[in-house]
Amino acid sequence: MKQWIIEGIRTGIKTTKYPKKEDTSPGISPGRPVLTEASKIDPSICPTSAIRKKGKKTEIDYSRCIHCYRCKDDRGGKLSWEMSYEWAYFTKKGQGPLKSSFQSSIHILVVDTGSCGACLSEVELLNNPYYNMHRLGFFVTPSPRKADILMVVGPVTHHMELALKKAFDAMPTPKRVMAVGTCAISGGIFTPSFITASSVSEIIPVDLEVPGDPPPPLAILYGLLILSGKMKPKRQ
């Protein structure tokens, strides 16, 4: 067994400094499009109508963006992309962050309701040495009875609706629901359909949304931090 201990020490600390320091390592985020005043873009280029015209103005609805990159300047589009990851935002009908008494130990129940596996893999990577969410007091729990936050991943299929409702009902209050990924927020490319709901909020009330397809681990971590009240949301 001792060779494993040596190997562990030899590897050193890989964990990100985030949230104390911003992480700017290459390859941590797929990025997202930004509109500048000069950018003229035809909204029809977007397959999920995330780019749309409102009156004379064009705007981007990030809750629909699936990172198809068709609007990006290096693939035939015109928009430049930013490499950010602090994307999460509170919903209008949601309850806001948890009270301070919960801040040091938050238990999360993860429910897969039809994800493609990428979002779920990113959630799994939160336990990876690079991100290590335990250091911030976040734990994945097996039981809804112990959970403070319900993390829903993927468009809600009709087959998973009942399981999701039961898990939500079994959670003690105060509780918060977090929709992770574009598919969970707006159905992504899987709607309109007879078998998937158009969003998680159609089934249970959602407090926080993390857009991205899939949102990178740091985006999910930022979401957890602001939902637990450990960090103040940055202005978008």
Partner: peptide, 20 residues
């Protein structure tokens, strides 16, 4: 660590961590 590094390599190469 290998998994995350490969995802980052993929992202630097293609723009997306899962090669979308």
């Amino acid at each position: 660590i290998l998994h995350e590094e490969l995802l980052r390599i993929s992202c630097e190469f293609s723009g997306h961590r899962y090669l979308f």
